[in-house]
């Protein structure tokens, strides 16, 4: 299972990549594997929206499960991945790359401290199995 070390993670299987003041958000390889074949992605926020940590920003469906994607941090949405709803299978094939969901301008970077690093996330997965 792929858990890139440069990312931060949530208990709910989201990842965030921070570059400067901008965070890119998606779901992890472990999450896509649990969901199995993704058939639908809907992004629930638009560019310019203010979001709080914990708000749901996207919903994902496979044939047998549905999941909401929650914001790992607060801030302003600066981009959404418009291609993803047409290529939901990307969440399975490239969860950390092409399947990013939103980009957010962080309003409270200290929230990052509350997230998991790769080894803590790895431990969380191991504990739940």
């Amino acid at each position: 299972m792929n858990i890139p070390t440069e990312l931060k993670y949530t208990e709910n299987d989201e990842w965030i990549r921070v570059e400067g003041n901008i965070g890119t958000v998606g779901i992890t390889d472990h999450a896509q594997e649990q969901l199995s074949d993704i058939v639908y992605v809907e992004i629930l926020v638009s560019e310019g929206d203010r979001v709080a940590k914990g708000d749901s920003c996207a919903t994902i469906e496979s044939v047998k499960a549905a999941a909401d994607v929650y914001m790992p941090v607060s801030g302003k949405i600066v981009a959404i991945n418009e291609k993803l709803p047409d290529t939901p299978e990307m969440v399975n094939s490239d969860p950390y790359g092409g399947a990013w969901m939103v980009k957010v301008e962080l309003s409270n970077p200290s929230e990052l401290n509350g997230l998991l690093d790769a080894s803590a996330y790895q431990a969380k997965i191991a504990a739940s199995e």
């Binding site: 469906e61 044939v63 047998k64 549905a66």
Partner: peptide, 14 residues
């Protein structure tokens, strides 16, 4: 049966 992920047995309170 398709799009069942919308339904109560999967989404529950959502």
């Amino acid at each position: 049966l398709t799009l069942t992920a919308r339904e109560q047995h999967i989404r529950r309170e959502k």
